[in-house]
Design a protein around this nucleic acid. Structure first.
Length: 479
RNA sequence: GGCCUUAUCGUCUAACGGUUAGGACAUCGGCUUUUCAAGCCGGUAAUCCGGGUUCGAUUCCCGGUAGGGUCACCA
């Protein structure tokens, strides 16, 4: 690396063509973490040079996505900074300036062909089964560039390139990767290939984190660095994220979701951060649940993976649950109550729900299935359901009466799940089988095949309601 | 197709050339138990194939196979 100590500057540079999916967020996350860890600067830059693909509202959406997961930037379009502006469409003067330098040095020329003419050459090359290279059709006497034609880079030295990537190691490419690519389009906007180099230079970016789709065009970038005689930043290539099938790289086309959808599905931002951190990176130890702070501390470019990682929803759910469990009770309640109707906003219900869900949207499913109704509605059930295995109705009925008696005698102040458990287990342990009292009791209180244990149920329902429901069960048994 | 690149349990991954190939998720079994859930304990399960280098290869080299990327006036 560098022998001179240099402040780390990283950036995330999305184009405003819609929402961000986890691939983009992951790239931002690593760039952010690296800057944070090194007390560096993290820049948000908007690459809006393709007016045709631009989608209204994207910038706000992108900012919202980043903020939700907790990524913050030191410089950006919303907060400004020493290198303002942070939208490429507002930096056209810079690109023009460097374009002129390239023209003067003989590294750029105007493209006299129409788009159709170039396309025709491309098709012909295709038919002849050879790669199309514009430089093979380079005009002999190009016109003076007046800004209405595309400005192309002129590859003077057609050679192979080799370079080092902080993740991928030593990479190389043959001369066919080099071509006279377009620097400035005929509409006056620069291409990505040119604009990002100028911006990174002017903003002092030291480490460029980006996807592996840019490996192929790296020789083009290198040839520009050489022509401009400028030092290149370090390249940090992220491994691709594969879709759920593990086959194809995740992309918007095949179902990559808007990152903010995870918010709506009830995932915690710190869980998403934890999950994304591990797609393409893993720390030294074996700990898999990390807080954002722990992630930043552990983050190391050397531990970024080379090969692609998959998106595993089961693991995401597990990580989310682990983070939910680590939430303070206050926050657990806040999140859970968000999904509950007023009549169910009971403190004691929170832990029951927490241990049963992986993500908060599952509460909605629980509500729909009716499995929470018994908390505020007397359950409806049949006599058969109260009977434990083949126990006589008589015995069940007597056991419930004994339970009722015990509960009635309990002081209101002592009525909590621990005490109820102690008192009732005393009875239960004297029986042939504990189920002969605990099952009918649980059923009397919940009316459900699957539910929390009767002590917790009684505690939540309160003494009065518990007594009422046991009485009802006894009358059903005797009917 | 050319060029670039990747390859460890079902999935995600760990292993300065020497490990009984480790961990996590999932799965299966047990414990606990009144049913779930949670928790605890345990099991099954992997180095893509073929050559080479080496005393020794998951690890290094070559070839094959399979996957991914890229070949735009998109980024």
């Amino acid at each position: 690396m560098e022998n001179q100590i240099q402040k780390v500057v990283t950036r995330f540079a999305p184009s405003p063509t819609g929402f961000l999916h986890i691939g983009g967020i992951r790239t931002a996350l690593y760039a952010w973490a690296y800057a944070k860890k090194n007390n560096g600067t993290f820049i948000l830059r908007i690459e809006d040079t393709d007016k045709a693909r631009e989608v209204e509202g994207s910038i706000d959406h992108i900012i919202e996505s980043l903020k939700w997961i907790g990524i913050t930037w030191n410089e950006g379009p919303d907060i400004g900074g020493p290198n303002t502006p942070y939208k490429q469409s507002e930096r056209l003067e810079s690109y023009k300036k460097y374009a002129k330098i390239l023209i003067e040095k003989g590294f750029a020329y105007a493209d006299p062909y129409t788009e159709e003419e170039v396309e025709k050459m491309r098709v012909k090359a295709d038919e002849e089964k050879r790669p199309f290279l514009y430089r093979e059709h380079r005009p002999e006497n190009p016109p003076v560039w007046d800004g209405t034609q595309p400005l192309r880079f002129k590859v003077k030295d057609i050679k192979s390139y080799e370079w080092d990537d902080l993740v991928r190691g030593h990479l190389k490419a043959g001369p066919e990767a080099l071509d006279d690519f377009i620097l400035i389009k005929s509409d006056g906007y620069p291409t990505y290939n040119f604009a990002h180099i100028i911006d990174d230079l002017e903003m002092g970016v030291t480490h460029v984190m980006r996807g592996d789709e840019f490996i192929s065009s790296t020789p083009k970038f290198l040839s520009v660095f050489e022509a401009l005689e400028i030092k290149r930043p370090e390249f940090v290539t992220m491994p691709p994220i594969m879709g759920a099938d593990g086959k194809k790289k995740l992309g918007k086309r095949d179902g990559a979701k808007d990152f903010l959808e995870y918010k709506n599905e009830g995932y915690l931002p710190e869980a998403m951060l934890n999950f994304l951190a591990f797609i393409g990176w893993s720390p030294e130890g074996t700990e898999e649940i990390l807080t954002p702070e722990e992630f930043i501390n552990l983050f190391d470019i050397k531990k970024i993976h080379i090969s692609g990682g998959g998106f595993n929803e089961e693991k995401l759910d597990w990580i989310n649950k682990e983070h939910i469990k680590r939430l303070s009770f206050y926050n657990q309640e806040k999140y859970v109550f968000d999904y509950l109707p007023d009549e169910l906003k009971i403190k004691k219900i929170v832990p029951l729900i927490i241990e049963r869900i992986y993500k908060f949207s599952e509460i909605t499913t629980m509500l729909k299935s009716g499995e929470l109704d018994f908390f505020y509605k007397e359950p409806i059930y049949s006599k058969e359901k109260l009977i434990y295995k083949n126990t006589d109705i008589e015995i069940i009925s007597n056991n419930l009466k004994e339970a009722l008696d015990t509960i009635e005698k309990t002081d209101d102040a002592d009525f909590n799940k621990d005490n109820i458990k102690i008192f009732l287990m005393e009875i239960a342990d004297r029986l042939e089988n504990r189920g002969q009292i605990l099952h009918p009791l649980r059923f009397a209180l919940s009316g459900l095949d699957k539910s929390p244990d009767p002590f917790i149920l009684a505690d939540i329902l309160g003494k009065k309601e518990t007594i009422s429901r046991i009485n009802k069960a006894i009358s059903i048994l005797n009917s």
